[in-house]
Design a protein around this nucleic acid. Structure first.
Lengths: 331, 331
DNA sequence: CTGAAAGCGCTTACAG
DNA sequence: CTGAAAGCGCTTACAG
């Protein structure tokens, strides 16, 4: 690979001048400039980003650690981050923690070693606060994505409480008073927010939480199938509506309803967070809270750039609105 | 940030020794070693990957350019690549061309500037051969993913011909002789392979391609809805089965069938490549060719590492098998 | 068993 | 308007 020295030699100038021509960072005589550019072409010179980064202590790259690259919502966030980063001329280093705090730690350290200009992290379910402390120690710009913390950091997520409230209002409006929340792993902040939001929404509707009408702690479709199954098979505990807090929970719960031969929405209404694509084409058509996942990613980059450019500005927490697609499953 | 010089000073040794201790690259007296390690801890030293890469001309990173980060199949491939890379201690630089050859070009150049050790590319639909030439000029290891080329490069994709053949055999076995192939953009190699495979399969069944029974060129759900709609509304051209070659094509075609009030599979059978998740939970339950997208990504990394370690070995083309999930839509 | 020193390919004050 | 030179933080032959 040709270096700046080769170009300088061929053009008969110093490496300073070559550098300044390439980066347009100071005025150069048109003639000299032309010779340099010609030399660049002729030797096929390409600036080495590594050397440049080392010298400038800035890499023009950002790191993204997601907790579950297999989940469509996270895939969309990755897409949004990539898009926004590309627009700004930033490269994206992607890592997946697979919900494993140890892997998350390694991913963050690697990204730190590579001197990314900033970090966006959607934390693993069991991730402790020490990770954030570690990043702060390095005073590396950081934005939390989707899975927020009760800390003084920049973060962007969904307004889960508002979405739950709207959904509960919709269901109670249809006369439902016994709603089963399939809540999932409450260590995941977004799931906890939905859980808390659900309780608050019921309370404000004067309903209170019927005992046994929460289903929490399960994370797999199989486990959800089982626990939801046992709740709905028992007429004592059977709800008139089910609200699932993620796609995988919805899959398990939906299967349980089908296994119990309960028609939707005839015997039981059904709604879900995230959920299935192209729902309009299939039966049952399921009412779905659609997260603005792509925009979440874009916003994370925006917050990160703010932090990089203004290290001492006040941190902000952004809550984006989800949209609810109302369909026949809750009619 | 502490550097190797700080560590050396504190431990009272040379930077050579520090480097060798950290990298375990030559024997060091246990006592010295311990002092170095203690110094590393005490100053919170972390090796700068940038400087290391510059010196070694090796970055332990790979670049991945996908053509459509929004498509679930590509998201899974990204996931597979990430997983395999992480296992090998490689960082992943991700870029999306969004099916735009110009963006693809920029993405590749950026990755080349960053001196990734190798490149995995799922090319944009209109991508020309000059991009591959360019990468070869730099003699940078390259693997083509999913969208293959008729060139002497390492590549991994799906055995599309085999999948189509199996599906066609399944349909003809059910008595279908008029099958509509919703083929999509034939500039996309994988779609072209399905198209060619379809013709070959019909021929080997002694059927030949009925005129007007191909629907090609459309890439959006809306355009597909329209063209499939006009084909199935006309009893002269109406097929008894539809085979869609991608998720978005399937969405458009399915809508057209529903708009025409043709029951599936009563009036018309339906099958698709890729397609919808959790299909078993919804009606119509659609027969689906499931690509091993994650494995495709993993295999791409494997081929790339082979190439990096053995630059002069023979190139290989790997074809992974898809699995067909047979469901009621083709009963 | 260890160290002095060159060099990877850039950028950027400093000087003229 | 341009150049000589230091330095970013490492690795690695070379020498002892």
């Amino acid at each position: 690979m040709a270096t700046i020295v080769d170009v300088a030699a061929l053009a008969g100038v110093s490496t300073s001048t070559v550098s300044h021509v390439i980066n347009e960072t100071r005025h150069v005589e048109p003639g000299t400039r032309a010779r340099v550019l010609a030399a660049v072409q002729s030797v096929g010179y390409r600036r080495d980003a590594l050397a440049r980064s080392l010298r400038r202590s800035r890499t023009d790259s950002i790191g993204l650690v997601v907790s579950d690259a297999g989940e469509p919502a996270f895939a969309d966030m990755v897409h949004g981050v990539e898009e926004a980063a590309a627009q700004l001329g930033l490269s994206l280093l992607l890592a997946n923690s697979a919900e494993d705090p140890a892997r998350e730690r390694i991913a963050v350290e690697t990204l730190l070693d590579r001197r990314v200009d900033g970090l966006i992290v959607a934390r693993a379910a069991g991730s402790g606060p020490d990770l954030l402390t570690r990043i702060r120690e390095e005073s590396k710009p950081l934005v939390l994505l989707d899975r927020l913390a009760d800390l003084d950091v920049d973060q962007v997520g969904v307004d889960n409480a508002a979405a739950v409230a709207e959904l509960v209002a919709h269901l109670t409006g249809k006369g439902h008073e016994r709603i089963l929340l399939v809540a999932g792993d409450l260590r995941v902040p977004s799931l906890r927010e939905r859980f808390e939001g659900f309780r608050a929404a019921l309370k404000s509707q004067g309903l209170g939480t019927p005992p046994g009408i929460m289903c929490e702690g399960t994370s797999t479709a199989a486990a959800t199938l089982e626990s939801v199954g046992s709740i709905i098979r028992n007429p004592e505990t059977r709800p008139t509506a089910i609200l699932a807090c993620s796609t995988v929970l919805a899959a398990g719960a939906l299967k349980a309803v089908q296994d119990a031969n309960l028609p939707i929405p005839g015997a039981i209404a059904f709604a879900t967070f995230d959920g299935f694509t192209y729902s309009d084409l299939f039966e049952p058509q399921i009412t779905t809270v659609r997260q603005p996942a792509f925009e979440l990613g874009e916003t994370a980059v925006e917050l990160l750039m703010n932090r990089i450019n203004e290290p001492n500005s006040r941190t902000q927490t952004r809550r984006l609105n989800s949209t609810i697609e109302f369909r026949r499953s809750t009619d």
